[in-house]
Design a protein around this nucleic acid. Structure first.
Lengths: 205, 205
DNA sequence: GGGATAGTGCCACTCAGTGGCATTCGACGT
DNA sequence: ACGTCGAATGCCACTGAGTGGCACTATCCC
């Protein structure tokens, strides 16, 4: 996931830079001025890009705000696609997650924190971000299910849903302490939260 | 949840009728012509209502499509607000759900099925519908947490998330068999899916 | 150099959603 | 019956997200 591939064709380098500048500027503007108060026209003005070009880089206004989420999930899916998941499935999925977290760019966790704080404040972003989880869930069920055909469909789906539930709880905890401890802390919270799962199944009111 | 309150002031009766007509017509149009292919202007034309009035009844285009979801969750929250949840929490939440399902209007399950089929086809609806679950989750954590203050915050949140995960899996199963068996079948699927949870936690790849 | 082409800018358009204000119509007292 | 009050509605103009189409520019490759 390193960037700066100086040896890429100039065209792609330019395109990547535009993409990057757009998402970073957007994140800054959304945080400073608020999501609704920032129009895409303003963003495009600042980045000196036409609105048409914006929509060739991102599918929607929500998309550009959630670029950090998107980065994580696509890296995760790529990793799960290659790794051999053996043993308890939920545990394997969690390990893959922590591996992926460790391999994100150094700057990623700052962007991710800002993104999470944004999407807790803006319902539209929250919904859209849940949509990402949903898509990822679907892809994972297909990937994992395709490899282990003997696995019960319902059980598999439940497992993946539980995985997402635990992840969301863990990242919420991390966000609510303002990302303190960086990704090491996030990784630890993921472990702790997953460890809580059996107790959550049986806890009493 | 019975309707036809003939003894309501005429004004409110009219308003309720408009609300109802809008959501039913919308569901029909969305199903027949497709969600994106149907504009709110067309809907308002048919129902003979101004677009302004539409937005006084529903917050968005997605909202009117997901009226059946909204009905379920608000009924559920109302019930959970009054019921005494004792014993294993997850089990109590599931029982409350089945009770609520049993108390919905006779017509509800048809609307709900159409809604679910729609929102599987339209990403925007999927995301918005997940948003509902999210809001309900939050409300439940507050309600239940407020009543049993000694309960661990993280554990509570996890429990509620698992509840939602199981519900979504169950309703997906019901939808994928086109709602066969009506709400009795749905209730049974809920029970079966919740029963699968412990196995899903430990299943192997 | 020179032709193919990916990527961009510009313009006009649709449609979701909002604000403001005039109008209508049911509620209610006399 | 009549008039008044106020909630709900209709109407109009507006913002902003997102799309289609076409001309244009810059990169790539030979």
């Amino acid at each position: 996931m390193s960037d700066d591939l100086r040896e890429l064709p100039l065209r792609q380098r330019k395109k990547l830079r535009t993409h990057r500048t757009l998402s970073e500027t957007a994140l800054r503007l959304f945080t400073e001025r608020g999501y609704d108060a920032t129009t895409l026209d303003e963003l495009c003005d600042i980045v000196e890009v036409s609105k048409r070009t914006f929509f060739r880089n991102f599918r929607s206004k929500e998309d550009v705000a959630l670029a950090a989420d998107s980065d994580l999930w696509s890296a995760y899916l790529a990793y799960v696609g290659t790794a051999t998941l053996d043993g308890p499935l939920l545990e394997a999925l969690r390990l893959a997650l922590n591996t992926t977290l460790g391999e994100m760019e150094p700057d990623w966790e700052r962007r991710f924190l800002a993104t999470r704080e944004l999407s807790e404040a803006v319902p539209a972003l929250q919904a859209h971000s849940l949509g990402y989880c949903q898509d990822t869930t679907k892809a994972m069920v297909e990937t994992v299910g395709g490899r282990a055909g003997d696995l019960d469909e319902v059980r598999l789906r439940l497992t993946v849903e539980i995985f997402v539930a635990a992840w969301r709880t863990a990242s919420l905890r991390w966000t609510s302490q303002r990302g303190r401890g960086g990704r090491a802390a996030l990784t630890r919270l993921v472990e702790e939260t997953f460890a809580e799962l059996p107790a959550a199944l049986t806890c009493r009111a």
